[in-house]
Amino acid sequence: MALTKAEVAEHLFEKVGLSKRDAKDMVEMFFEEIRETLESGDQVKLSGFGNFDLRQKSERPGRNPKTGEDIPILARKVVTFRPGQKLKSRVEDGNAE
């Protein structure tokens, strides 16, 4: 089972007492604010959760897997996530073998 925006909104309705409308807007804006920040080229640091960083990738040779044709993979910027210590240890402890 996966956590989705709808469930996050429902949780805010129950735990914080926001209206359903506000809860939905809050969830939407939470993720949009992070996207906008990354889009503007800034890092996002959420203590206890993790950091979203940007990495510049240079162009490298690639290939179309269907046709076998050589095509360069263009230089681009990618988002990487580094989990914070609290998230790492909660995941490790919660999913111990």
């Binding site: 089972m1 996966a2 956590l3 989705t4 925006k5 996050v8 949780h11 805010l12 735990k15 914080v16 926001l18 809860a23 809050m26 969830v27 939470f30 993720f31 992070i34 996207r35 959420l46 206890g48 959760f49 609290k86 998230l87 909660r90 995941v91 402890d93 919660g94 999913n95």
Partner: peptide
Amino acid sequence: KSIKEILELMVGSLAKGDRIEIRGF
């Protein structure tokens, strides 16, 4: 409070082995 709840819910979800799927994010 909402932002802290969102993050805690996300941490809790992964801690119990559940995925998180946010469309567009």
